[in-house]
Structures are given as structure tokens and as C-alpha cells.
Amino acid sequence: MNEYQHLTKQGLWDNNPALVQLLGLCPLLAVTASVTNALGLGLATLFVLVGSNITVSLVRQFVPSEIRIPVFVMVIATFVTIIQLLMNAYVFQLYQSLGIFIPLIVTNCAIIGRAEAYASKNPWQRAAFDGLAMGVGFALVLVVLGAMREIIGNGTLFDGAELLLGEWAAQLRIELFTVNYPLLLAILPPGAFIGMGFIIALKNKIDAVRSARAEKKTVTRARVTA
């Protein structure tokens, strides 16, 4: 397995920022009431993550360890502010519905975590790829959780996708079923916690089954003595 495959596996599954590292839960739980919102925040986070990873990796030679954290924070904050301004200007509707969660990306520990754990120790190509893998992993969890909550709570999928992707996306909306009384809990924040719990449990279960199936390897015993 080469480094890029390894990074992909880490970001998407083994070390998924949301499911395994449990980072960035605040925006994750707050915006996943629908797929559209989840996708929006996921993409924004992805973009910031790639950008900050590249930047951190590029400047890592010049930054002494004493001030690395403030520098990372500044890099991330700059990216987030820029994204916020751009979204405000070009995808205003989505900006409105994601609201205060865009600035919250600054506090998403997944980003500073990657900067510290990976980008500050690796060349920029790899750092960029790590940011991409981690960002995609994070966004995927967001989308899955968003889909789950939207289906249970609203009976739809991709409701309001046009806000994010333009008018054509209005056709994406799928009405799975209509109920008179949607399960509001799914849409409300507690539903996010419960749903997240179930996704993590599912992941752990899959891992357990996979490791049970995995072939047994043998390790040669090291001899301490003659």
C-alpha cells in the first residue's frame, strides 16, 4: 500500500475524523438536519482542510514549534473567513441556512488536528491529499447523518439542494414518503446525537466483523538471547 492509498483509507475509514477521532462534532451535529446542509458544510470544511493543510505544509520549515499553534489557527481562520465571504457573495441562500456554522469551522478540531498531526510533518502534496481524504471522510459522515435525519424527520432527501447547487438541483429532491407526523426528534439536535451514536456503532460492528474474518497472520518471535 503506498502512502496515498494509506491516506485514503485513513481518512475515509480507519481514522475518520468524525467517526473515529470524534472531532468537529459541534458543526457536525448542528447542520446535519438535511443532506443539503450537510453537503454544504462538508464541502466548506473540505476546502478549508485542503487549503490549510497545504499552507501549513508549505510554511512548516519556517515555523518554530513555539508559535506553531497560533500560526495554524491564523491560517485556518483566514481560510474560513475567505470562504465565508465567498459563500456570502455567491451562494447566499446556503450561507443563510448554514448561518453561524461557517465561522465554527475555525473551531473544528479536525482541521487543526490534521495540521498538527500530518501537514506540519509532510510535504505539501501529501498534506493536500491528507486534507482531501480527511475532508471527504468528514463530509461523507455529514451526508450520511444528514440523509438519515432528513429521511426519518422529513421523509425527503436533497430538500433544498437548489440552494447549494443551483436551480437544476431542485429536481434532485426525492420525496420518499409523506407522514402527517414526522418524527421531529430526528431533526432536532438530540436526534443528531442519537444518529451519530448509531453510525459509530455500525462502523465498529463492521470493523469487528471484518477483523474476525481477517486472516490470521503469524509473527516471528524475536529471540532475546542466544
Binding site: V75, L86, A89, Y90, F92
Partner: peptide, 25 residues
């Protein structure tokens, strides 16, 4: 000095984007 330099660059970048997007927003 390093931290100050970073701060200046970062702030300038933000200001730049802000100026660019002001009207549109």
C-alpha cells in the same frame, strides 16, 4: 517577528477578499 508577519499576511488576505466581495454581498 514571525508571528507578526503571519498576522499581517493573513489579515491582508482577508481584507483583499473582503474588498472583492463587498458589492456582491
Amino acid at each position: 517577528l514571525l508571528l507578526a508577519a503571519f498576522a499581517v499576511i493573513a489579515t491582508s488576505l482577508v481584507i483583499g477578499v473582503q474588498l472583492l466581495t463587498e458589492d456582491k454581498i
